[in-house]
Design a protein around this nucleic acid. Structure first.
Lengths: 239, 239
DNA sequence: CACTTGATGGTATGTTTGTACCATAAAAAC
DNA sequence: GTTTTTATGGTACAAACATACCATCAAGTG
């Protein structure tokens, strides 16, 4: 076994172990030992590939930032077939709403890092600010185009609206993470809001259930989670 | 000095020390010693009033939840003089946007707790879910009233809109905490959004600067952070 | 005045953590 | 074929931590 080895591969393997460990015990509970166990290697090896714990945490953060970029780009590419700005926007914003276990894990650890970066001077969250800022500019472009195409109220302010969209999607994603809302409800709310931003348009589905995404609700009734009735909230769906 | 002592007062004092300690070193870095030092007492005393660290953390969380309720109620009461639903809603939502150091500290620790509660089984965040849920119901009531009074689009879905508002305010607050946006920008965005929700109405100021809260922007221009231009972002204003 | 009880300080203890050190087997280089 | 890297394991160690234990001093209580 002791042959020549691809360092990047090993590092990626260990970082993934850290991410998994952080996902179910919390980033604060991550230790050299827990990472080593999760990766199936000795502590010494973790030390070998990342000299210190701080550098390991830093590397994992960098990897998270990269992966976030990839995820967004994937969404854009996948939804890119539909030229409708609304669908691209929806796809991008829905990235923040964790659906399966994989995305839940990802966004949980990402959020833990973001919060940690506020107090930990070693994590000078550059990476965390650049991604959202790019997203914001991207959305501004789409919204401006949509407005000029007449798909939206001409008085809409693209930048402010982009910030609202981003904030709402982050907030909804967080509420799903905290177990306050289901991913389906969050998605429905997002679709509702987009329906108000793009009047007259209709979400080109997406194989997503939740019929509440019909532009405006066909006057009055507003299908799905229904009018003023209690919405179905959830109290920690954690297994 | 060793007289009979008000336990609740002592406990409150120690909890405040914990909150302060958590605010500038991070909740993960809080230790019995750091709390004791911050409170100006011996470690033994912290142990005396809260048997274990877990109970101390739990008590601090409970206190945070109570304080959050008080904060919201204060906002409602203060803005209550204005009967306009829009102003009440604005006041309540702006609570999530930290302006001074005090509110920044509060919301930072609150957020740290919320995130921690996802992975730590001891913190079964009941308290975190009840407050937002009450807020949601409260907003639904206000929005429904506003819609019936004709202040809003009759096709607006009060519940979905309430969720959007709450999510956006949480997201904006978080972005301020992370140093991505200034509190003033976040407030302006919130006012902009309310301006779209309540067409024709005008925010009854609030001694708050940021002239960008003028209903709709007087056609086209939208004062303050200006049209499609780059908004002024900030990169960690931490001292 | 005896004495019990509440409030506090100091210190010891066992565990966990990050990291440094020592060892070694396999490959690569010469 | 010797020697030097490269990759790995094991273990040792100092620091920090939560907590348990021991001691004490001042009030109340009888």
């Amino acid at each position: 076994m002791p042959k020549l080895v691809d360092h990047e591969e090993r590092r990626a393997h260990i970082i993934d172990a850290l991410l998994r460990s952080a996902a179910d015990s919390g980033l604060h509970a991550v230790t050299m030992r827990s990472v080593a166990v999760e990766a199936g290697v000795s502590v010494r090896l973790v030390q070998y590939y990342f000299d210190t714990k701080e550098q390991l945490l830093l590397a994992a953060m960098a990897r998270l930032a990269v992966r976030m970029g990839e995820r967004i780009r994937d969404r854009v590419r996948t939804a890119g077939s539909s030229t409708a700005p609304r669908d691209i926007i929806a796809a991008v914003l829905l990235e923040a709403v964790p659906t399966d276990e994989e995305s839940r894990t990802f966004h949980l650890v990402y959020t833990e890092y973001a919060v940690l970066s506020v107090t930990d001077p070693a994590l000078a969250g550059q990476s965390f600010l650049s991604a959202p800022n790019e997203m914001e500019d991207f959305l501004v472009g789409l919204l401006t185009a949509a407005r000029q195409a007449g798909d939206t109220d001409p008085r809409m302010d693209a930048r402010q609206e982009a910030v609202v969209l981003l904030a709402a999607s982050a907030g909804l994603g967080l509420s799903v993470l905290l177990g306050q809302r289901t991913a389906q409800d969050a998605a429905a709310v997002l679709h509702y809001h987009l329906g108000r931003l793009f009047p007259g348009s209709r979400a080109s589905d997406g194989s997503d259930s939740s019929g509440a995404s019909d532009g405006f609700g066909g006057s009055g009734g507003s299908g799905g989670s229904g009018g003023d009735g209690k919405s179905s909230r959830v109290h920690r769906p954690r297994p």
